[in-house]
Design a binder for these strands. Structure first.
Length: 449
DNA sequence: TTTTGAGTTGTTCGA
DNA sequence: GTCGAACAACTCAAA
């Protein structure tokens, strides 16, 4: 019998954000449908996990409880307690790894210590092998008695009360079927060009599998298996290798979160505890969140996020860098906003990403590595298609100015239908000046602590 | 223990 | 337009 227990209170500070809850709802719908096709149905309960489990165990006389592991610090703690308690009750309790190539504790250095640098980690993992096999679907599932109680999905109130989710509905089909379709489409596209194409927000060069991976609707081993099946072998295909490497980063993020469970809130590199962030002005933060910073690429990304629950990876870096370096607002503010708005919000990935951009992760980017959103736009959205799509008020600008409208003569701007400060904001900060100030602030931090 | 080489994703400046 | 150097110093990992 398959059971879903909704226990958001147990997730504490990092309880699912609104976009993730939307995904979860539809994911459960899809899951239940596939279970029903196998002659069963999903039982849904709400409340403290252990108590709810015991209730269902009492109702069914279940003797063996199994689940796939999740790796957020609080989840690990909770599941450990549940496992011990149920074992004391005399039950057989087992958990499995379904979401990673290897457990976070299985990849380690000679002395048993965790890795803090990706490349050696990835080499070590690869030398263990990415072999994998895919088990077939079960032919059938145990019938659930007709009178067995279950909440409806609506009872969980996962969907937004105000219908802001139209953009999400257009962009995504949560569930295993959606995942497999997405994977097929990705593999049918030219994966050989992935390493360059993945940087182009104006193209559809990425897999878009992140939310499916997060919710366990597809797993990295399954993806690796499919790639191998498609290509015959993985070696020698630069695009495929580069893509698998991204799965490696996901894996590494889980490794780090497991070994350094304080990092969702606190910098791994402790010198950053003394960094002087700007006090976030709600107006400034809001301009960033709503895509009104006056920097086209940043705004395009933030609007794509708001509209679809997802943002292209390259643009995530640029938008995050702008918040953390140019506005010098604490990366946690950004992490929390992404947490609420991303359908692929994942504590491990979100943490490693924001700490990398802020430069406070273990393998810190040099402090002087500050993205210039104009250059990044010209390089990775050379025709401005991405900006025009998400910032339509700039659509008529000539390509030369699409990433820097403030450089355009006022008269020309107006003939493109843009009055700066009216139709589209002036830049929130001067890019050059704020860059220099950030460099200065990072320099001041260095050496102390 | 000491040493050595390396570390996702950049930008700017000057030749 | 292109190219290489400078931008700091530190920590990690492995030999």
């Amino acid at each position: 019998m398959l059971l879903f227990i909704h226990a958001p209170k147990e997730d504490g500070e990092w309880a699912m954000g609104a976009a993730s809850r939307w995904w979860l709802h539809h994911s459960i719908v899809a899951f239940d449908e596939s279970i029903r096709r196998l002659g069963s149905r999903l039982i849904i309960r709400q409340g403290p996990s252990l108590a709810m489990l015991r209730q269902v165990i009492a109702e069914t006389g279940a003797q063996r409880i199994v689940w796939n592991r999740a790796y957020e610090p609080r989840t690990i703690e909770r599941d450990k307690e549940i496992k011990e308690s149920l074992r004391q009750d005399g039950l057989i309790v087992e958990s499995f790894n379904s979401t990673l190539f290897y457990e976070p504790w299985e990849v380690k250095r000679a002395k048993g210590e965790p890795y803090k640098v990706f490349t050696p980690y990835w080499k070590a993992l690869q030398s263990k092998g990415l072999e994998h096999s895919i088990l077939p679907l079960p032919r059938s599932l145990t019938l659930v008695p007709a009178d067995m109680e279950s909440l409806t999905l609506e009872n969980l109130e996962l969907l937004p009360k105000i219908p802001w989710d139209g953009g999400l509905r257009d962009a995504w089909h949560p569930g295993e079927k959606g995942a497999l379709t997405m994977l097929d489409e990705f593999l049918d596209s030219e994966i050989g060009g992935y390493s360059a194409e993945r940087d182009r927000p104006d193209h559809a060069g990425t897999s878009r599998l992140s939310p499916y991976l997060h919710f366990g609707e597809i797993g990295p081993r399954q993806v690796a298996w499919a790639i191998q099946a498609k290509l015959g072998c993985m070696d020698g295909n630069a695009g495929a290798e580069s893509f698998i490497r991204q799965l490696g980063w996901r894996e590494f993020a889980h490794h780090l979160l497991f070994h350094f469970p304080h990092t969702p809130e606190s910098p791994l590199n402790e010198s950053f505890l003394s960094f002087r962030w700007n006090e976030p002005q709600s107006q400034t933060l809001q301009a960033w969140q709503t895509g009104k910073t006056g920097i086209p690429l940043v705004d395009a990304g933030m609007r794509e996020l708001w509209h679809t629950g997802w943002m292209h990876n390259r643009v995530r870096m640029v938008a995050a860098s702008f918040l953390v370096k140019n506005l010098r607002i604490h990366w946690l503010e950004g992490a929390r906003w992404f947490w609420d708005t991303l359908v692929d919000a994942d504590l491990a990935n979100n943490t490693i990403g924001w700490q990398w951009v802020a430069g406070c992760g273990a393998d810190a980017a040099p402090y002087f590595r500050i993205f210039n959103p104009v250059l990044q736009g010209q390089r990775f959205d050379p025709n401005g298609d991405y900006v025009r799509r998400w910032v339509p008020e700039l659509a008529q600008l000539p390509t030369r100015f699409i990433h820097q409208p403030w450089q355009m003569p006022t008269a020309d701007l107006e003939s493109s239908g843009v009055r700066l400060g009216v139709d589209y904001p002036y830049p929130l900060v001067d890019l050059k000046l704020s860059r220099e100030q950030a460099l200065e602030a990072f320099k001041q931090m260095g050496g102390r602590v």
